[in-house]
Simulated scan of single mutants.
Amino acid sequence: MTHSSTGRASTGPAGTGPAGTGRAEPAARGVRPATGVSFAAKLAYESVWHSFGRGADTLRGVSLTAEPGEVLCLLGPSGSGKTTLLRIAAGIEAQTRGRVLLNDREIAGPSVFLPPEKRSIGLVFQDFALFPHYTILDNVRFGLTALSAAESKREAMAALARVGLEHHAGSYPHILSGGEQQRVALARALAPRPAVLLLDEPFSGLDSRLKDSVRAETLSILRQSRATAIVVTHDAEEAMRMGDRIALLRDGRLVQLGRAEDLFQKPANLFVASFFSELNVFDATARDGMVETPLGPFEAPGFAAGADVTVAVRLTAIEAHEKDGGTEARVISRRFLGDSEALELAVSGAEVPVRARIRCGALSPGARAVWLSVRKSDVLVFERRADSA
């Protein structure tokens, strides 16, 4: 379920939902009134470890801070520890070691463990988990049991108006689309005005055509609510679209933290680079500040002569043309992708086909022998390590 925890929240349903469902007058067409503004808080993890019993560690010394009012995206593959971090912050899971602090006040640590309802932290789960036998209004009122019926109804209607669904207050979840259910879950989490809002892959269940619009709406709502937000995703583009900063995790460790442009332009290693771009990867040896690859020589500043390196070339860095000049290649396959084409190319010295993503129409329909040039700003050179893939 969607868990909203503040001093006013309850921990679970007991029988039926809040009394009364009525409707409020809808807002003027096209205008969404703002819900009450949260007091944004700083949430910090200090050297947090976690494991399930005697199994492998799911988190390994993660130190990370979400600043007041920012949207921080936790990015990484399955099993990297993203959701575990959210559950620890919400109080659903306890860390093995380390501390969690809210505005520099310890809420989970060796001697302190605040229950979820005392943390002023809201959590939106991946599946929305709306109660099917509650109306939309009662779903949103669920965490407001410390308020009077009139006050909880007013707060819930304001939250629904903020997400544009006040006209569905008396409806039941089954009549709503996936995108509408997501917005109800968000309204329910925001209604108690949490200082921090946690969202666990909130768009993963949506049709791909809906994702862009619902994601943009959600980001707008987060900005206006001013709550600090931590969003879990495995989609790098989604993280770049939403996050003020991105924390990339791998095997329970924080690999790199920064703005989207930092992680894209200055990745810490090959793993980071490959998470944000499709790459052609070549092993090479640095000599005189240069490396030689099947696509030509490239600069490798900072590497000692004889150093083993990995050269990564983004697919979009390669341009193909039919005029003689550059690296000679032969087209193996060609896929039309709308505004671009995906090529597989045979290149002398390359053990596997070189891949490229080129502008549609750059090559004539029957082109087979082509020449390649590479945009050097999209070539990355890393120290070669066994775990860098």
Rank of each mutant, 00 (worst) to 15 (best):
L75Y: 10
G76R: 01
G76C: 04
G79H: 04
T83W: 13
T83I: 01
T84H: 06
T84I: 02
L86P: 05
L86A: 12
A90N: 13
G91V: 00
I92A: 11
Q95Y: 05
Q95H: 08
T96E: 15
R97D: 09
R99P: 06
R99W: 09
V100M: 02
L101Y: 12
L101H: 10
L102D: 11
D104T: 04
E106I: 00
I107S: 11
G109L: 01
G109M: 03
G109C: 07
G109A: 02
P110S: 05
V112E: 15
V112I: 12
F113W: 08
P115K: 00
P116L: 00
P116D: 02
P116R: 00
E117R: 02
R119G: 10
S120M: 03
I121S: 04
I121N: 03
G122N: 07
V124H: 08
D127C: 07
D127E: 15
D127N: 15
F128T: 05
A129N: 08
F131Y: 15
P132W: 10
H133T: 09
H133P: 04
Y134C: 04
Y134W: 14
T135M: 13
L137C: 13
L137G: 07
D138M: 10
V140A: 03
R141C: 07
R141Q: 08
R141L: 00
R141F: 07
R141W: 07
G143I: 00
T145E: 11
A146E: 14
A146G: 07
L147S: 12
A149V: 05
A149E: 15
E151G: 05
S152Q: 14
S152R: 08
K153R: 08
A156V: 01
M157W: 11
M157F: 09
A158W: 05
A159W: 04
L160G: 02
R162T: 09
V163W: 12
G164E: 13
E166C: 05
E166H: 01
H168P: 03
H168E: 14
A169R: 01
G170W: 09
G170E: 15
G170D: 15
Y172E: 12
H174L: 03
I175S: 15
I175G: 07
I175K: 10
G179W: 11
G179C: 10
E180G: 10
E180A: 05
R183L: 11
R183Q: 08
R183A: 02
V184Y: 12
V184S: 12
A185C: 08
A185D: 14
